[in-house]
Amino acid sequence: MHIRSALFNNTIKPIFFVLLLLPTLLLIKGISFDTLGANSPEYVFHSLGEWALRILLLTLLLSPLRRALRWPQLLQLRRMFGLFTFYYASLHSLFYLWFEQSLDWLAIYSDIWDRPFITAGVLAFLCIFPLAITSTKNMMRQMGRRWKLLHLLVYPAVIFSVIHFWWLVKADITEPLVYAGLMAVLFAERAWGKLERR
């Protein structure tokens, strides 16, 4: 499959941009019209985190999808998906620092060390942070082979994210189980592909 470059750049990319921004717009709408339930701050906080994880999984879906559909252009969407992951993860982290902890750095420090699920969340964020700042074409060119190596960090990032969510849930692990399942499928597909190419 191939779509004319101009069309791809002028239509497909903006469509995905708006789609990925949609959760933000819905949250803003929900806050404005007070439809997020009694504990709306927590709803916003959790939504931001979940969207980061969902878009991260979608980012990882792009390469297998590209192979399955024989549609190489999909790779051009990967940066946008990755940066949106970083965007939601950043908002989620800022929310934590500001509204959960009121910028109480001592409490934040001990929370990160004492609570494994927070540690996992921080590790996930530390994994995607360098990916976001090295996402420019310029950086790609400058770093060469090391760029590819660095961007393998996306795999620990998704593992830490799923763990972060899993350890937070009180009793009903259905949702984290779904994400763990999706992650397993994506990993298995890659392992399978590697074996086949040998």
Partner: peptide
């Protein structure tokens, strides 16, 4: 065991 109880919303 997993989270702090120091604060509440």
């Amino acid at each position: 065991q997993r989270w702090s109880q120091a604060k509440e919303r």
